[in-house]
Amino acid sequence: MRVFVAGATGVLGRRLVSQFADRGHEVVGLTRDAEGDDLVADRGGEPYRGDLFDADSLALAAEGADVVVHAATSIPTDPLAAENEWERNDRVRREGARALTTAAASVGATQYLQQSVVWVAANSRGDFFDESSPPQPTRLTQSAVDAEQIAMAASETAPFSASILRCGVFYAPDAVHTRQYAERLLRRRLPAISRGPLGRDEVVIAPLHADDAASAFVAAAESEATGRWHVVDDEPVSTREFLETFAALLDAPRPIPLPAWVVRMTVGSAAVSQFTTSMPTTNDRFRESTGWDPTYPTYREGLRQVVDRWQGDGTLDALRAGSVDGSTNGVLERR
């Protein structure tokens, strides 16, 4: 297949280029500059400069594509990010989806894959939910729901089928947020956040290694199945256990349990929201539809891979020394 990837220089996008190319597909990655060109070319793709918000520009870049993937985001790396930074991410989701679906239709693509987040359907009670559950968007996830609706509406009149891959909480060795969590755990600045006035209510999150997120998109494209799916690993885990496991692998102090209302005052509501939104869901439907099988079936194997990688390339020593600042190093998590 010929695959066009928007967001090809991000944590997910880089892996999409590599994995599609490794399986023999032609991959074109949307770029903005020479650095992006190199990132795509080094992973076996063909870089093409274009504008995510310009459908004509995207159509030129996606010419001949069978599959169009919207993997672009602009999620702030600063936990205390200002409103305008989140608005930029909203624009990438909404306007990017409009331009990409228009371009996909004009080039005659047969598949359109849209990245979303699994917690758009999470409920305030923390009950189990699945792909049939109604969305319950918040300020931060409304644009993800909007992008889903834009994609599905476009597929009703376009030559392509649209699929939505709602991914779990990403982590990876080269992800800024993962390095930020590690740095804070090492300095005992990231507590095990929980809900309730006394912090006694456990929160269940749905992690997903970025390698497995990418392989899920490849599986969806190759299977030609269509649907709205939850792409998470095989075992939901409490925020407390996830952070305690990460801390143990890092040989960091065990994180102190604290209620969310206390932590929100120091690290920002956006960061706390991700760790206090329960996501008890499964990947069952996606597995059945595509045959996908994660390389890292649980957070245990995935976090071990992260720390092993850091030990091998010197990152862990740098984190312990305080010489890696994930919030400012654009090479780590380019968007």
Rank of each mutant, 00 (worst) to 15 (best):
M1A: 15
G10Q: 02
A21I: 05
D22L: 11
G24H: 06
G29C: 14
L30S: 09
D33Q: 04
E35L: 08
L39F: 05
R43I: 04
G50S: 11
D51I: 13
F53S: 02
S57M: 02
A59S: 14
A62E: 04
E63P: 01
V67R: 02
A72F: 07
T73D: 03
S74R: 15
I75D: 06
T77M: 14
E83P: 06
E85D: 14
R91G: 02
L100G: 03
Q111R: 06
N123I: 00
R125M: 00
F128N: 01
S132R: 10
S132G: 12
T141F: 00
T141S: 14
A144V: 11
M152V: 11
A153N: 13
A153Q: 12
L165R: 06
C167L: 15
R179N: 15
E183S: 15
R187P: 09
R195P: 03
R200G: 14
R200E: 08
I205C: 02
L208M: 10
H209T: 09
A213L: 12
S215Q: 10
A216I: 03
A219F: 01
E224C: 11
E224H: 12
E224T: 09
E235H: 09
F242E: 03
L243E: 02
E244T: 13
T245F: 13
A247M: 03
A252Y: 00
I256C: 05
A260E: 10
A270Y: 13
V272T: 06
Q274W: 07
F275S: 01
T276H: 07
T276D: 08
T277V: 10
M279V: 13
T282F: 05
R287K: 15
G291T: 06
D293F: 12
V306H: 02
D317Y: 00
L319E: 03
R320F: 07
D325I: 06
G326K: 00
